[in-house]
Structure formats: C-alpha cells, structure tokens
Amino acid sequence: MPTPDDIKQTIRRFLAENVLGGNESAAISDDTELIESRLIDSIVALKLVNHLEETYKIEFEAHEVDQENLSSINVITAFVQTKMK
C-alpha cells in the first residue's frame, strides 16, 4: 500500500515532466491550486488521471475526473487513497 508521500511523489514527478519542464524543485506546494491557477489544463489533468490509474491500479469514474478531486496535490492524494481502500 503506497503511503501518502509515495503518491505525492508520483504526482510531483508527473507535474515536473508535464508542466514544469523537468524542474522538480519548482515552487508548487501540496496545497497549490493546480486547475484554478491554470497550472494544469484539461489535457494535462486527463493525462495525470491516466497515470494515477495505471500506477495504482484504480479507476476514476467519468464524473470523478473533476476539479473537485484534482485541485491540489493534497486533494488528489486523498482521493487516490479513498480509491485504494
């Protein structure tokens, strides 16, 4: 069972590769608004969902691919954890 830190690390690595141009140390905190601040757009959000599904063998329902569940690293981590229970 991955720890919350493992999941956060997965998300951070994904963001570094897909949004921040490889710069993992960029100033994104666990609470930084990812969608509202337009740091990630819809395509990146969908890629992230696919990546989390493959990594953790979970499945997001169509309505769950939503700003509510993807708004920050903390929120995504909590959502992935509930999916793994």
């Binding site: 819809s42 959000a45 169509a62 691919v65 939503d66």
Partner: peptide, 12 residues
C-alpha cells in the same frame, strides 16, 4: 466546459 474538457464525461 465541465463536460467538454473532461473527455470521459464527454464520451459518456
């Protein structure tokens, strides 16, 4: 937007 940008919802 909420249905279009979420491609899964759009397909559904």
């Amino acid at each position: 937007d909420s249905e279009v940008k979420n491609a899964r919802l759009l397909a559904q």
